[in-house]
């Protein structure tokens, strides 16, 4: 993750060759999230993913209510 906007972070990630030396590839990536993750047990990580996914879905629904659906997949994603 970068300190910039999510879109910028995504573009930067896309431009990185993961095979390049770590000092270059690791720029702008907040590894404290990785360190936090590695403190959890594997099962705790999976449960945290479920929780985070629930939050993501809640925010997506709120965004859709506010701005309408912009992604075709988001309209079909509801169970």
């Amino acid at each position: 993750m970068s300190n910039g906007t999510p879109n910028r972070a995504f573009e930067e990630a896309a431009s990185i060759d993961p095979g390049t030396p770590a000092s270059i590839a690791d720029r702008d990536i907040d590894f404290s999230l990785l360190e936090d993750s590695l403190r959890l047990t594997p099962w705790q990580r999976l449960v945290e993913n479920d929780r985070a996914l629930g939050l993501v879905r809640m925010l997506e629904k709120a965004g859709t209510r506010t701005h309408g659906a912009t992604d075709p997949d988001s309209r079909t994603a509801e169970p």
């Binding site: 990630a13 990185i16 993961p18 770590a22 990536i29 990785l34 590695l38």
Partner: peptide
Amino acid sequence: KAALDRTQDKLALIHLRRIQQA
């Protein structure tokens, strides 16, 4: 992940390699 070479996987790949180093 390396074989797929998809943009969406590159960040995960960086983390995975970090974990491997650790």
